[in-house]
């Protein structure tokens, strides 16, 4: 038994207890380098490098990552097996990231699901079980009552036209015809959309709920070109 144990211990590889061969001065230098890289990243993010911004930022980020892992985490000086374990996990995580993104990037289901969730979120906890507001969409006009009372509201939308239309309810002080436009549609990132109904085929109906605060709103169809053709209507909430 003793000889077996001795034999087992003899088989253990020699344990590496050697300390990294760099000291505080080198660590501080590495810290300075990491700070400089971060400053460069910041400059790049505000620069006008166009399509180069993303690859440059990713490369700089990767350099920082590798420097920290190699020197601060001592992986460069440690047992190679530790590097393999960590790289395996990192590569697996990166593969999962690419797999998920390639599966779901611009996925119609997600976008549509988001629309529905967002409509409910805009209703602030689903409190909007109040007044019904009927909206009729057609070429190229939005038909709706011009006034409503603050509180929960349900927009019942019908596409009376011959082509698909949708509805966006926008809270804004801008005139109905003066919303910011980009690429043929109202730029929704520049306005506050409080309710929305996805594209409706001709004859289809849809609905959305929202809690309306007092103020000015504009109802629009944001199918490309339709807003410019006159598909907007003002709504004042008292």
């Amino acid at each position: 038994m003793t000889s077996d144990m001795a034999h087992g211990e003899a088989q253990l590889p020699e344990v590496e207890h050697s300390l990294p061969s760099i000291g505080p001065r080198q660590y501080v230098m590495i810290g300075v380098i990491l700070t400089v890289i971060t400053a460069i990243e910041l400059w790049v993010s505000y620069s006008s490098l166009g399509n180069l911004i993303i690859p440059v930022l990713l490369i700089l980020s990767a350099v920082k990552f590798i420097v920290v892992v190699a020197f601060f985490m001592h992986l460069r000086f440690d047992h190679p097996a530790l590097t393999r374990f960590f790289v395996f996990g990192f590569v697996l995580a990166t593969a999962i990231l690419f797999a998920l993104i390639s599966l779901f990037w611009n996925d119609a289901t997600i976008i549509e699901g988001t629309r529905q969730e967002t409509v409910h979120a805009a209703a602030e906890g689903g409190a909007a079980a109040g007044a019904k507001l009927e909206v009729a969409l057609g070429e190229f006009h939005v038909g709706a009552a011009g006034e409503a009372v603050a509180g929960g509201a349900e927009f019942d939308v019908k596409n009376d036209g011959a082509v698909p239309h949708n509805l966006r309810v926008i809270k804004t002080d801008l005139a109905p015809e003066a919303l910011p436009v980009g690429g043929g549609v109202v730029d929704e990132s520049q306005v506050e959309v409080v309710a929305s109904v996805a594209d409706l085929a001709a004859g289809a109906t849809g609905s959305a709920t929202a809690t309306l605060a007092a103020g000015s709103y504009v109802l629009i169809c944001n199918v490309p070109g339709h807003y410019q053709l006159g598909m907007y209507a003002a709504l004042t909430v008292h």
């Binding site: 395996f88 697996l92 995580a93 990166t94 999962i96 998920l100 993104i101 997600i110 988001t114 506050e192």
Partner: peptide, 25 residues
């Protein structure tokens, strides 16, 4: 730490997938 890579990788993936899918600010 290797397993934590998977954890954060999944959360970052979710952020990137839903990035730009918000309809309200």
């Amino acid at each position: 730490l290797a397993s934590e890579c998977l954890f954060f990788g999944s959360l970052i993936s979710a952020y990137l997938i839903f990035k730009g899918a918000s309809l309200v600010g």
